[in-house]
Structures are given as C-alpha cells and as structure tokens.
Design a protein around this nucleic acid. Structure first.
Lengths: 230, 230
DNA sequence: CGTACGTCCAATGTATACATAATTGCCACA
DNA sequence: TGTGGCAATTATGTATACATTGGACGTACG
C-alpha cells in the first residue's frame, strides 16, 4: 500500500478514536518523523483529511484536527435525516421486499431478546443488533443504488461517529432503537416510500433526543427556530 | 495566491466548462509544463479535484476527468431533492418571513414579465430570474444555517452544473420555473416546513422531467423501480 | 508600563531529483 | 499469424533541498 494511504488511514483512525483530539496540530515534519517517511505523502494525507472536514486550516498556517462539539449534533442529524430518508424512500421503491422483510424479522427478534433474560453466553443482543444495523444500512445503500447519495452519507456518518464519543450511548435505548430499525426495514419491505420516510424520521428524532438528553446544554447561541405552523 | 490554488481553480473551471472533457487524462507533467510550475502543486490540485469527484483514478495509473452522462441526471436530482427539501424545511422554520415574502414578490413579478412583451432593452427577464434564483438559494442556505448541508449541496450543485451542459435549457420552461421558485419562496415565508417541502418537490420533479425530456434515452441498464403503493 | 516595530525562526509551499511500477511495443516462438 | 513474454519507456510515488511566509519574541520608544 502507498505510504500516503497508510498515513491517511492511521491519522483518520486516530482522529475518529479521539487519540488526536480537536485542536491538535497536524505538523508535517512531526508526522513524517513519526511514520518514518518524508513530508510529501504526509502532506497528501493531511490534505485529504482537510477535504473531508476532519481537519482544517488554522488561520492560514498549520492544520489542526477540526473541532466537534455537542452543538454539531443537531445540524449533523439534520443532514443525516435528509439523506437517510431519501435512501430509505429509494430502497422502498427499488429494493427486494423479501430481503428487507427478513431483516425486519431478525431485528424484531433481537429487540425482543433485549428484555428477556439471556439463554447463553453466546447470546449478545447488543453485538447482534449492531451487526444487523450495519447490514441494513448496507442493504439500503445497495438498494438505493445512488453513488452520490452514498458519498454524502459516508461523510456525515464519519462526523457522527466523532460526536458519538461526546455522548455515550444509553444502553436502555438499544431495545427501542432495535424496534425502530425493525420498523424501518418493515416499511421498506412494503415498498411504500412514505411509510419508509415516516419510520426513518421517527427513529432519527428519537435518536437525536436521546443524544441531546445526555449532551450537556451548551452556552446560548443556539439558532432560534420558529414553531411549525402546518 | 498559491500556485496549487491557481491550478485548482483553473482546472476546475475548465472541467466545468467542458474544455477538459470527460476521459481526458490529467497528466502531472503536462499540466506542470502548461502552468510553468513544478509537479508538486499540480499534484495537490489534481488530488483535490479527485476528492470532489471531478476527476478519478484511472485503474491505478493516471487521473482522468470523471465522466458524467445523462444517466447521472436522475441520481443527482435524487440527492439534490433530499438536500434542497431539508434546506427549505429548515429555512421555513428559521428564516425571516419578510425576506422570503419579498423574494416571492420579485419572483412572481419576473415570471409575469416572461409572457408580456418587453418594455425596454433593459428588461431582461432571464437574467433577472437567474439573479433572483441565486439570491434565493443563498437566502435559504443562510436561513438553514447548517454548514454540513451547505457543503453537501455545493458538491451536488457542481456536478449538476456539469450535466446541465448535456441538456441545454428549454427557454419556454423559464417562466414556469420562475413561478415554481416563487411558490417555494412563498411557502418558506409562511413558516410551514411541509408546504416548503411540497413546493421544492414539485419544482425539482418538473425540472427533472424537463431535463430528461431533452436528454436522449440511454441504453437499457436503468435501475428498475417499483411503483409507489401508499 | 504599554504599544509598536523589526528581526529572527520555524513551518509550510515549491522545486527538483530519485525510486518504483505499469503500460506499451517489439521480438521470439509456437 | 497470433500469442506470450520481456524490456524499455513513461508516469506516478517518494525523498530531499530550497524559497517564502507568517508568527513570535524582544527591544525601543511613547
């Protein structure tokens, strides 16, 4: 693999894991010495990180890991809502109903197992749930069959992976989230774009509220929002 | 201005204008000689173009201007629909009603002037319309106040600017488009997210149909889409 | 004591030289 | 004549050296 690619992968992982915290400067010489290579591939890697929003220019000189705070949770969810809804709508129209019906079945099963006592050490509902969610995301993306939608989604998902570190998950929400995901899969399997949109909107609203409940209220400055008047 | 920035601006403009057609190889040495600089900043510029989707790796060797065909129109409009709807929804909730009411008034005025005979050489409805649309896009983005939404939108808009060259605009649609834009502005000014969404969805559907009507039907391979069953 | 200007330094931006890999063309052999 | 392999060439990937810029620190003056 090319050196620039290795450095990019490594720096990206460290930023997403929080090992390189927001505000940390990404000096070319420092990183090139750390990786034992020259500045050129490091420079390319940092450029890619900046293009994706994981890093940004520091006042015209120097690149730093970009800052993400709890203030970013709401705007990121707004974009995610737009993209996930469209993906679910397209999947409902284009996907294989049987595939999503099967996913819905398995998600409902996992959701039920959260409440029941465990039957064996093999039975790990959270792990099974995460696996299924990932599988459904891939299925929806594949069914939507839209490369640009994929690209936009992956950018937002990457940022959301960062903010997720700011507000640790509430274990008690996993069962509810699993049921919501099952509803999404079920809606997609029916072929109704409207139903799929409703299911996604519901799930993301709950997920956002859960995240904000744990996130400390930030200083004022929040954008004023008029109430909906339908 | 930095050399890499100049090269990036120039190459980007040439790609968007079609001077560098899809499939054209972007050789580092060739471009560095053309601009009279070294390979390093050229390499950086081409890297940025590739990151934005205007160019792409050619099998592992060489970077070429990415291909856009009429097949891309529908998927691009699907992403644009998702983003524009969300932007309009947020603008309806957060924007200044008076600002968008004023935009609606001016758009309705321009729409009317398309049909009436011109009163002077100064009266150029298309130019006025384009100016107003741009103004409204900026107003919606500003009201939505979501940097990530802006970033995603600008990427899609750039690609759409390329495909627009493939299917020249229908002058007779401008008047209808102006009325649709006026409806969007009016909907946003009422503060109703639902109404704004409906207006944007209507406009983009018409715009897409107009574009596809002029675009030649491509060879099979189009993704099958089940009909909506609400 | 505070501010403003100048010099120095360090990090980025650019150029060039070297290494490496892939494609293409040519030659030999079947 | 076609195919396969090898070599040469060319373009990219990486390293290093040089240029430039922006900031920081120190000093001098108000």
């Amino acid at each position: 693999m090319r050196a620039s690619q290795r450095v990019y992968n490594q720096l990206r992982a460290e930023i997403l894991d929080g090992d390189l915290p927001p505000g940390r400067v990404l000096a070319e010489v420092e990183q090139s010495q750390r990786f034992g290579i020259s500045r050129t591939p490091v420079r390319e890697a940092i450029g890619r990180l900046a293009a994706e929003g994981l890093a940004e220019q520091q006042g015209g000189r120097g690149v730093v890991v970009s800052d993400v705070t709890t203030d970013d949770i709401t705007p990121l969810f707004e974009v995610r809502e737009a993209l996930d809804i469209q993906a679910a709508r397209l999947a409902a129209l284009r996907g294989d109903p049987a595939e999503f019906a099967a996913l819905a079945d398995r998600l409902e099963d996992v959701a039920g197992r959260f409440d029941s006592p465990r039957h064996s050490s093999q039975d790990d509902p959270p792990a099974a749930y995460y696996e299924l969610v990932e599988q459904m995301d891939r299925a929806i993306d594949a069914a939507a069959a839209n490369p640009w939608l994929d690209a936009a989604s992956s950018t937002v998902r990457m940022q959301l992976a960062r903010v997720r570190r700011l507000a640790a998950q509430d274990p008690s929400r996993l069962a509810a989230a699993a049921r919501e995901h099952a509803q999404i899969a079920r809606a997609v399997s029916t072929g109704s774009a409207q139903l799929a949109e409703a299911a996604v909107r519901l799930h993301l609203n709950n997920a956002l509220n859960s995240a904000l409940a744990k996130a400390p209220a930030t200083a004022a400055g929040s954008t004023a929002t008029r109430e909906e008047t339908p």
